[in-house]
């Protein structure tokens, strides 16, 4: 009896020890995790500040008055007398609303046409068989090697020769096809197993119906992604619209910003320009916030999904 009791006590002691040990390990682990978390968040906060600062600067400048902006030898990081004067100016000094509308038309039409062209081209390259398919695709891909600036010059010559300067057609036409998006979507289409195509055939669909009812819904994330990327690209485009339009009627917002900037009294009117930039950025930010999930989905699995 005694022996067993002793044993038990010994066991208990041991057990207690291991319990203590366990608690100690747990405590140190918790501490380590806390420290790690602190560092992570500190780093992330810093990085967020770096990224967000230009936006803050943009908004801040847009609410400073022209005179106070110019009187600050070293720009201040805040202002005590915010004003909306710049916004009024941005809309009155130049027909910004008109440019805005132009840009919307340009972006929407270009994106829609680009989508149709890209989806059809990608489907042809991925699914159909026609003579010269591989050659055509190789040529198309090799276009990606040619820098945009070179293409701009030939496009300019072509569009001018066609007499399409200062028209929406001339603005839109060169941006309708996008080699990279065709490539991206083709890869995505090819990931969809052949058997689905055969199944759809047996189920009585035509090629076009298969594309519409099966392929496009399955590849929706990629399609949404390229749509948004294209829309952003259109919204931000500057060189081409600047080149091809002399008529104010066809100016886009990017041209408008430039105009406002040159509109100051002998000096650049930076606050008014910033106000315009804020106004122009808002739709994109809204677009991104709305489709944030889909964009991320499309980018992260960009092609691996079957």
């Amino acid at each position: 009896m005694e022996i067993s009791e002793e044993k038990e006590q010994h066991y208990m002691e041991q057990h207690k020890n291991t319990g203590d040990e366990f608690k100690k390990i747990e405590r140190s682990d918790r501490l380590r995790r806390k420290v790690l978390k602190t560092f992570t968040y500190a780093g992330l906060t810093f990085w967020a500040l770096v990224v967000l600062f230009p936006f803050y600067w943009m908004v801040l400048t847009s609410v400073k008055s022209y005179s106070s902006y110019n009187s600050e030898y070293i720009p201040k990081l805040f202002t005590l007398s915010p004003t909306l004067q710049n916004y009024k100016e941005a809309f009155t000094a130049v027909p910004l609303a008109g440019y805005f509308l132009n840009t919307v038309i340009f972006a929407v039409v270009t994106t829609m046409l680009m989508l149709i062209v890209t989806v059809l081209a990608a489907f042809a390259f991925a699914r159909l068989n026609f003579p010269g398919k591989h050659l055509a695709f190789t040529l198309l891909l090799s276009l990606m090697m040619i820098p945009n600036e070179l293409v701009v010059i030939t496009n300019y010559v072509t569009i001018t020769n066609l007499g399409l300067r200062s028209t929406f057609t001339g603005l839109i036409l060169p941006s309708v096809s996008s080699v990279f998006y065709i490539y991206l979507l083709k890869e995505n289409f090819e990931q969809v197993p052949d058997q689905l195509y055969y199944a759809a055939k047996v189920d009585g669909t035509s090629d076009l119906k298969y594309l519409r009812k099966v392929l496009v819904p399955i590849c929706r994330p990629t399609i949404v992604t390229i749509t948004i990327l294209k829309a952003i690209e259109c919204w931000n485009s500057y060189v081409w619209p600047r080149l091809i339009t002399d008529d104010e009627k066809y100016f886009l917002v990017s041209n408008g910003i430039q105009e406002i900037r040159e509109n100051g009294f002998g000096r650049e009117n930076i606050p008014a320009m910033m106000a315009a930039v804020v106004v122009i950025s808002v739709p994109l930010i809204v677009l991104f916030l709305l489709f944030r999930k889909v964009i991320m989905e499309g980018v992260s699995r960009g092609g691996t999904k079957g």
Partner: peptide, 19 residues
């Protein structure tokens, strides 16, 4: 063509439409 034959087919990997 396949779409006009009116046959039913069960594929090896089922080929269900995932969406």
């Amino acid at each position: 063509p396949a779409e006009k034959r009116g046959v039913g087919m069960v594929f090896q990997n089922y080929a269900l439409y995932p969406h």
